[in-house]
Simulated scan of single mutants.
Amino acid sequence: MSHVLNLFIRSQWYYWWDKFHKGQLKLTRPYMIEIMYSNQIQIANLTLVNSPSWFVHPIYSSDIIIQGLTILAPVDSPNTDGIDPDSCSNTRIEDCYIVSGDDCIAVKSGWDEYGIKVGMPSQHIIIRRLTCISPDSAMIALGSEMSGGIQDIRAEDLTAIHTQSAVRIKTAVGRGAYVKNIFVKGMNLFTMKYVFWMTGSYGSHPDPGFDPKARPTITGINYRDVIAKNVTYSAKLEGIANDPFTGICISNANIEKVGKKLQWNCTDVHGVTSNVSPEPCALLQEKPGKFDCPFPADKLPIESVQLKTCSFKSLSLF
């Protein structure tokens, strides 16, 4: 009986992945957990395996705690994001272990003209004590669906192992809105393609109805206290022509590179650095003296909320 059940469970997710790879899907793949238009959400102490698409997707919601999740999918599985807070606020994500075929955490707020119309940002989110494995994607992605805005994201005590990039910003002309006031502190990275990666040319769109004049604002992006080993490239920072990414700050970052490739590739960005090795690109000017990029000292309201525990009693019918 257990063998039959295991085959049945496997068939549910394999069906979706197989159809996706063959280009045969006419429907959107389901998420494992999706909660909409809600507040006071707590999801904790679960092991989630092999979602057809994203695993945990709170959307248009607030006052959220996601704690102690183990999320597992093959590293070649399609679009199996771990946790995607989408137009959410006052959110705490902590103590999670994620192995994924896509971004371990992706903060989103709507896509192109649809996100602009709703205009509900993802904001006041703290992510801490995260461990991520995702060879083809990011530990934390901001975007690419960010057309309602993303602001005041605080991430600390992060570990990535064999992951394509650390905290990545993904946007494009047509997205509009902003990604601003992003604070990252304390990253330990092992076997990375990119440590710092931002792109303004993430060009996929849901339909032709996007506004080509809707340019995103990317500013106030702060990284500090980074240790990275076995890295292919230190950074790939690509802003948008005539719409540069500004206010980038990187401090106290030690990157052990592999090979002699160009380590910093920077276009249309402005910012400062302090105590960063290898030497950053000229567009990120070295700040004299000892300097730390900011990280907020205040606490978000969700940080004082205690996780509620549920209890149950098993009753025998015999």
Rank of each mutant, 00 (worst) to 15 (best):
D243F: 08
M192P: 00
Q151E: 15
G82H: 03
I150M: 06
R29T: 00
R224L: 04
Q151V: 02
Y223S: 03
Y15N: 11
D63V: 03
H57D: 01
R92H: 13
F190D: 14
K308C: 01
V99L: 07
G149F: 02
D112A: 15
L237V: 06
T267L: 11
G203Q: 12
I250W: 03
F196E: 07
S147C: 06
A106K: 13
V276G: 05
V56E: 02
Q67A: 12
C266D: 10
E94M: 11
M146F: 03
Q24M: 11
K287V: 06
E256K: 09
L189G: 07
A235F: 07
N254Y: 15
D298M: 01
D152G: 00
K229D: 09
E238L: 13
S316T: 11
K185Y: 05
G68H: 05
K287T: 14
S234Q: 05
D268E: 14
R128T: 00
T232L: 12
Y114D: 11
V231E: 04
S314Q: 12
A73G: 14
Y194K: 06
T199Q: 09
R129Q: 13
T47L: 09
E94I: 03
P216D: 09
K236H: 08
Q164C: 07
A297G: 14
I250H: 04
R168F: 01
Y223G: 02
C266A: 14
I41T: 05
Y60I: 02
A282S: 15
C266K: 01
E94F: 08
E279I: 12
R128Q: 05
S311M: 08
A138P: 00
Y14F: 10
E279D: 11
W111S: 09
I93H: 02
T232K: 14
C88F: 01
L25V: 02
I250K: 02
D207G: 14
